[in-house]
Design a protein around this nucleic acid. Structure first.
Length: 589
RNA sequence: GCCCUCGUAGCUCAAUGGAUAGAGCAGUGGCCUUCUAAGCCAAAGGUUGCAGGUUCGAAUCCUGCCGGGGGCACCA
């Protein structure tokens, strides 16, 4: 928000260093002054001093850094808009003139409103592939992390200025699917799914099919037969597959609607089946893949092709020995199809859990070896899975899963209960909206509020704890801001500079508001939703502390006007941050 | 065996190579006649797994070790 001032000062600093003969021409790194209640920007001279040391000048770096900071402070004097300049411990601290700057921040946020924090269009397109559910299976909490990560990241990238394509890749074919179909036509022919919890029902039948297959010596053969009949376009098999698949797809749609997620492009594994096999043949012809059928599968010996002595990429199986396709077969063609569908794609991002890191490394490398240049723009964003306490991985086979439907129901019910206790006056319709907004928010937030590389642990107690660093806390701050504005009559006073000495809590809140646009950019650059979940929480915390320390409505008129504008700025900032995370900001709770 | 990854307060997690390592939860003590207490305030809690190295400066980068998790030919 203050790039212009910063650049002007930076120019002066560089001139000063040049004058002193310091061989340092890099850009300065700026940060906020880390003392609470103070507001300003800071940079250090350690790099410059170190550059001198490297150039042969005999200096003690910290001492020299302080010398340079001192000299720089004298050289730039007191720039416009600043109230104080100091050199401390090698740092140059520039304190803003709080009256001027606080008004500027508040005015800027209010002018932008719902758009506050949006970056300028970058003119670059990125595809984010996420969710990737399997038909004929249930959805559990693990799937939710992927969904939320992908959805939030897509929102953030878009807000940061990217053109975003939200893509889904649905696992609607393969051995597991046909296993389900095999069991269904044997034992459930003619049955139809229930009205509610369709994906759970599909999952139950999937678990049943697994058990039945284990106890059926002819099962594997019969499934292989189904495979070939599907390929040949057998009407009965394809018809049944299509019908049952649709049940899952409808179930997914319900979940996505509930979660507020949409996709721009949906790919299916079944579509990749045929072109995948053709591509495998091509790779064999070109000598990239080795065909060991029928004794073995079709493989690519990646390390050999790269001339690597040590094993690294190892071997990728791209077609089974029985001619059936597998994951890698489809992925090889899907990766290329994405660039065909969107030729201007700058980045093709895969949000898939970390266990598939090697798989993607292999697939991308094989395509590179095959001369597919665009594949350099493909990237895998690996994230860790959601485990149960005791580091137990969820397994539908062992019944150790927390189903999405159950989780949502519990969270919404808990939210309703808390709402009834703390705000009994709400009417039924509003209560319902609050329960859903808070319940859904509370399950979404923790899944994206930790680094991707950290395993998330699910337990009911903390999942349903609405206190502290959690989505309801942020929503509550928004509600309080809204409440003040409502009681003020809705009108926001005209722009005004503060005439009172700003409270440290006001300063802290203003600083966080000013930082939001940078947080959005950083989250987009690093593909880290964590930047936004943290910022949203910090913002809510700053607002709560401000709320507690600084009366608004009962303050004297000049103070009241300024604070009212500050509250009016905080409200959309909180709502925007939540919106990026896919979380609603209800007006009351 | 090879490769990847994680290790920070009792627990769950933060911390663009930079100033005094911060939050939440749990526990302790306070605050509702004042804008919604899903809140706020205070105190307490640390050898950043261990040992070296690089650097003016390391929780952060490198090496080794210890411990947890994951991946390594026809699952996805």
């Amino acid at each position: 928000m203050f790039e212009r001032e910063r650049q002007a000062i930076e120019t002066q600093l560089k001139a000063y260093l040049a004058e002193q003969g310091v061989p340092f021409t890099e850009d300065f790194k700026w940060s906020n002054i880390p003392f609470s209640g103070e507001w300003g920007i800071a940079t250090s001279f350690f790099q410059a001093a170190a550059a001198e040391a490297r150039a042969g000048k005999k200096v003690v770096v910290p001492v020299r850094a302080q010398e340079l900071a001192d000299g720089a402070a004298r050289a730039i004097g007191l720039p416009d808009g600043f109230s104080r300049v100091e050199a401390v411990k090698g740092y140059l601290n520039l304190y803003f003139n709080t009256a001027t700057y606080s008004q500027r921040v508040v005015d800027t946020v209010l002018a932008a409103g719902d758009e506050f924090g949006r970056g300028a269009p970058k003119g670059k397109r990125i595809m984010v592939e996420f969710s990737q559910p399997n038909t004929h299976k249930a959805m559990h909490v693990g799937h939710l992390r992927n969904m939320m990560l992908g959805a939030a990241l897509a929102n953030i990238l878009e807000f940061a200025g990217w053109d975003v394509v939200r893509a889904n890749y649905i696992g609607d074919f393969g051995k597991d699917v046909l296993k389900w179909v095999w069991n269904f036509r044997k034992r459930h022919a003619g049955e139809r799914p229930p009205a509610e919890d369709v994906t759970r029902w599909m999952g139950d039948l999937y678990a049943e099919s697994t058990t039945n297959l284990e106890n059926d010596p002819d099962g594997d053969k019969e499934i292989e037969d189904l495979f070939h009949r599907w390929e040949a376009g057998d009407e009965e098999v394809v018809g049944l597959w299509r019908e049952t698949r649709q049940w899952s797809l409808d179930g997914f749609s319900q979940v996505y609607d509930l979660m507020g997620i949409h996709f721009d492009r949906i790919y299916f594994e079944s579509e990749c089946e045929k072109p995948g096999k053709e591509y495998v043949e091509e790779l064999v012809k070109r000598g990239i893949a080795i065909d060991e059928r029928p004794a073995g599968p079709v493989i690519v010996k990646i390390d050999d092709l790269l001339g690597l002595e040590k094993e690294d990429y190892r071997v990728l199986v791209i077609l089974r020995s029985d001619d059936t396709a597998l994951y890698a077969t489809w992925d090889l063609v899907l990766a290329q199809r994405k660039f065909k569908d969107y030729p201007d794609l700058e980045t093709s991002l895969y949000v898939v859990d970390v266990r598939q890191s090697q798989h993607f490394r292999q697939v991308f490398k094989v395509l590179e070896l095959a001369g597919v240049d665009e594949i350099k723009k493909a990237a895998h964003l690996p994230y860790e899975i959601v485990n149960l306490p005791g580091n137990i991985t969820m397994s539908s086979r062992e019944g150790t899963v927390v189903l999405l439907e159950d989780f949502i129901r519990e969270a919404v019910s808990r939210a309703r209960q808390v709402s009834e206790e703390s705000n009994p006056e709400l009417d039924a319709k509003t209560r319902d909206e609050v329960a859903w907004a808070v319940g859904l928010g509370s399950i979404k937030y923790p899944l994206i509020a930790r680094d991707h590389s950290k395993i998330a642990t699910f337990d009911w107690e903390s999942a349903l704890d609405f206190n502290g660093q959690a989505s309801p806390y942020i929503q509550y701050a928004h509600v309080r801001a809204n409440s003040i504005l409502r009681k003020a009559g809705g009108a926001v006073p005209a722009p005004v500079a503060p005439t009172h000495l700003l409270d440290p809590k006001e300063v802290a809140l203003i600083e966080l508001l000013a930082d939001f646009p940078a947080a959005v950019q950083r989250a987009a650059d690093e593909w880290r939703t964590l930047q936004i979940t943290n910022h949203a929480f910090e913002l809510a915390k700053a607002f709560s502390e401000f709320y507690n320390a600084c009366p608004v409505l009962n303050a004297e008129p000049a103070v009241r006007d300024f604070r009212l504008r500050l509250v009016a700025a905080a409200r959309p900032a909180l709502a925007n941050a939540l919106r990026l995370l896919g979380i609603q900001a209800p007006p009351v709770m």
